[in-house]
Simulated scan of single mutants.
Amino acid sequence: MTNDDSAASAVRTVTLIGKPGCHLCDDARAVIEKVAGETGAAVEERDITRDEALYARYWEQIPVVLVDGEQHTFWRVDEKRLRAALTAG
């Protein structure tokens, strides 16, 4: 494996689970975009109104933030804590 391969496999992914019209989701998105931009993490969003399983699991907690598929936080995103999670080796 070359250094380029290991760098590509090391990209972290932040997933924002929310719904349209959610002001806390908008706040979370702003923090996620800032921190992901600084750390090089990929960002994806999932809409609970379009996914029954996500709705059933998270509807009381949105916005929910996952880091590499594991729940990191919900409701409010702490910028320092997210940055630490994304830069942890």
Results as ranks from 00 to 15, higher is better:
E70G: 12
A56G: 15
D26T: 14
A85Q: 05
E70M: 01
R83I: 15
A28S: 08
T2M: 09
K19M: 15
A85Y: 00
D68K: 05
I48E: 03
A53W: 01
G21P: 12
R57M: 05
R81W: 12
V14S: 00
E44C: 15
D4A: 15
R81P: 03
T73L: 08
D68T: 09
D26M: 14
I32A: 01
E79L: 13
E44I: 15
D68I: 13
D51W: 06
K34F: 00
S6R: 13
Q61F: 13
T13P: 03
V31Q: 05
C22I: 10
H72E: 02
T13C: 03
Y58I: 04
I32K: 00
C25F: 02
M1H: 13
S9F: 13
R83Q: 09
A36Q: 10
D47Y: 01
I62M: 05
A7V: 06
V31M: 09
V43S: 06
G21Y: 09
G69I: 05
S6M: 10
G89Q: 14
T13H: 05
D4W: 11
I62Y: 03
L16T: 00
G40H: 07
S9L: 13
D78W: 09
G69K: 00
F74A: 11
A30M: 11
E79I: 14
V35A: 03
R29V: 08
A7C: 00
W75D: 01
L24T: 03
F74T: 01
K19D: 12
I17R: 01
A10I: 03
A56H: 09
G37H: 09
G18R: 05
A42W: 03
R29M: 12
A41Q: 00
K34H: 09
A36R: 05
A88F: 13
G40A: 08
A7Q: 06
T15Q: 06
D5F: 15
S6L: 14
E70K: 04
A8H: 01
A56K: 11
A8R: 03
E45N: 08
N3P: 07
A36L: 04
T15E: 12
E60L: 09
G89F: 05
V77T: 14
H23N: 10
Q71A: 13
R12M: 07
L82F: 11
D78V: 08
E60I: 04
E38F: 10
T2Q: 04
V43L: 12
D68C: 08
S6E: 10
T73E: 04
R76W: 03
A56R: 12
A41W: 02
T87G: 02
A84E: 15
Y55A: 13
V43C: 09
T2K: 05
D5L: 15
A85V: 13
K80V: 15
A88Y: 11
R76V: 07
W75C: 01
R83L: 14
S6T: 10
D4H: 11
V14N: 01
E38V: 04
R57D: 08
M1V: 15
I32S: 00
T13W: 01
A36Y: 00
E60W: 08
W59I: 11
I17Y: 02
A42Q: 10
D26F: 07
L16K: 06
D68R: 00
S9V: 13
K19L: 15
M1S: 14
Q71H: 07
Y58L: 10
A42L: 07
T15I: 12
S6H: 12
E52F: 12
A42C: 09
N3S: 14
G40V: 09
R76C: 02
A7S: 06
